[in-house]
């Protein structure tokens, strides 16, 4: 199974941090973004680690991605779709798919025996493209 990244949310780790701060701050979004830019990636990493540790995975849902996937049968994809309701997949014929997921679903796929092969192919591609190194380090290593 091989995944090729088509698109992902810009600045994914900062996006997750924005969602986290939104819950606990009365500031406007612009003020939160300025605060997060000023504090930098170490702070985003701290927030990411906290949400993973506290199992507050909802904030990960704002990091989204679309990939082309080959090497997955209809049966395999059907099993995934039955179990993970937020995976979006469009068949492109043969064993090719356009797949969209958010980072929470990716973590849940990773932690599930049946979902792990799909998650691994996505994580390998994200790693190769350097999309979200902090998230990768905390969630998948």
């Amino acid at each position: 199974m091989k995944a090729s990244l088509v698109w992902s949310s810009p600045k994914p780790e900062m996006t997750i941090a924005v969602a986290m701060r939104r819950c606990y701050s009365t500031k406007t979004i612009e003020e939160i973004e300025i605060e997060l830019e000023k504090k930098g990636p170490e702070y985003w990493k701290f927030l990411l680690a906290k949400c993973l540790q506290d199992k507050s995975l909802d904030v990960l849902e704002h990091f989204t991605m679309s990939l082309l996937l080959d090497g997955m049968t209809e049966e395999e994809m059907s099993a995934i779709l039955r179990k993970f309701q937020y995976v979006r997949a469009t068949s492109l014929g043969d064993s090719d798919w356009l797949v969209s997921v958010n980072a929470r679903t990716l973590v849940e796929l990773w932690r599930d025996g049946g979902g792990r092969p799909l998650a691994e192919s996505i994580v390998i591609e994200l790693r190769k493209q350097g999309v979200s190194p902090l998230f990768d380090e905390l969630a998948f290593r």
Partner: peptide
């Protein structure tokens, strides 16, 4: 859809 909303548990609600 995914939502994350300002919490009234921690913020000063009366300022809003």
């Amino acid at each position: 859809a995914s939502y994350d909303q300002e919490s009234q548990r921690f913020s000063a609600a009366t300022k809003e």
